[in-house]
Design a protein around this nucleic acid. Structure first.
Lengths: 236, 236
DNA sequence: GTCTATAGCCCGATAGAC
DNA sequence: GTCTATCGGGCTATAGAC
């Protein structure tokens, strides 16, 4: 899993492909884990360095400050989600099938990258009210709008469903937030088990996605298998 | 809203009315606000004291430590919710009507006591992994089970609905957590507005409760007004 | 009961060796 | 690039006056 590669950061393109040095991703992963376990404030830079079998010198070489590191984790978390879900939003399927595929993909990713999603949750919570430099405040603003854009992926598809009549949406904003809130709540209780298979996670993701879209009402007809999701997934 | 009542903690009844001391509730309220705004770690005891126009001497006179204060807020938050929702769980209505009344009551309370619910969220999140004394660990265990009991109020009613066939519940645990996750997600975006009326909050609470139970599916018949909730509410 | 003053610790951040 | 050593600030918690 560890990269362990040369480096050649600034030394001209040099044509070669290959990840130069970027232990950066490793740092982000370690930071995400620590932020999940202890929360932003309680996690120390030493904790993160320990997890990398390194020292904080390395971390401060790559990131200006603890909060900058936090923002980098936040950004990677949202970008991962966007890159995973966006293809489903744009597939040629019917709106409702797309929404379901997005919900499942979102939930599966959440389970596979739990720590990043916990960081996103902390960032959404107010706790990042603290004193920031102007640059940091700008970065936060950009991240907030990146996140808003991600939510809009869902809102747009929900709106399409409403327009074609497949969903009843009294208030688009409330509906979108409540739907995504249900999906994200998986992070409150899901913890990966050793030897867990993809099927186990898929079972959970399908159950939750179904529930947030169709509810629990026995009078609604739950379509059991939406082939669209699987198809897209395999083609990656 | 504030209590302002005697206290007679140790000094025998003494008959006199007058607020003896219980500024305790005031401390809890101020602490909840600060914990919501800044998070447990970033909030300082001085912040909380400032909000009370007091000093930290007072707070340490009433609470042994910052984490004990946090636990006290957490406890009050769950007890408030339990006291509000339990009557609806036990009313004579049909299971599905009870569930809806509970969901609405829960969401309304969340909006009225937002800061307490943010504290509960922080407590549920892992962040309270930190080093605790044996007593504190015991207290946390008790609070965790208090919270579990509260969730079971919902689980039991959902189970009743499943048994009588009014809801389809593939997995009781996942369904309960997802349903409550949708309700609790209101705390991610709801912020009280000046001059907001009870009706405004009721609109939100009904919309969210409807969605987490019945979903958005246009083929389900949404029962629009459940008189049961209002009846119980007025009789308090 | 409430306040002031301060001890003591922890952690973010930096300087500089290698 | 990565590590060691350290400073400086801020916060919890306590001691003791009133």
């Amino acid at each position: 899993m560890r990269a362990r590669r040369s480096s050649g950061r600034q030394t001209a393109g040099a044509g070669g492909r290959e990840e130069g040095a970027d232990r950066t991703i490793e740092i982000l992963d370690a930071a995400a884990d620590c932020f999940m376990e202890s929360g932003f404030d309680a996690a120390t830079i030493d904790d993160i360095a320990d997890r990398l079998d390194s020292t904080k010198g390395l971390i401060y070489y790559k990131f200006k400050s603890k909060i900058d590191l936090f923002f980098a984790v936040y950004q990677r978390g949202i970008e991962l989600a966007r890159d995973t879900v966006q293809p489903h939003a744009r597939s040629g399927l019917e709106p409702l099938a797309r929404l379901k595929a997005m919900a499942i993909a979102h939930t599966l990713l959440l389970m596979r990258t739990l720590s990043y999603h916990h960081v996103i949750k902390q960032a959404v919570d107010v706790h990042v009210d603290r004193a920031l430099t102007p640059q940091q405040r700008g970065a936060l603003r950009q991240l907030t709008s990146l996140r808003a854009g991600y939510e809009r992926l869902f809102a747009h598809v929900i709106e399409e469903c409403a327009r074609e009549g497949s969903l009843l949406v009294p208030n688009l904003d409330i509906c979108t937030k409540t739907l995504m809130g249900g999906l994200d709540s998986v992070s409150n209780w899901y913890r990966p088990k050793a030897n867990e298979m993809d099927v186990d996670r898929l079972f959970i993701a399908e159950a939750v996605a179904n529930q947030v879209i169709f509810g629990l009402d026995s009078k609604a007809g739950l379509p059991k298998s939406e082939a669209g999701y699987v198809r897209l997934q395999e083609s990656r």
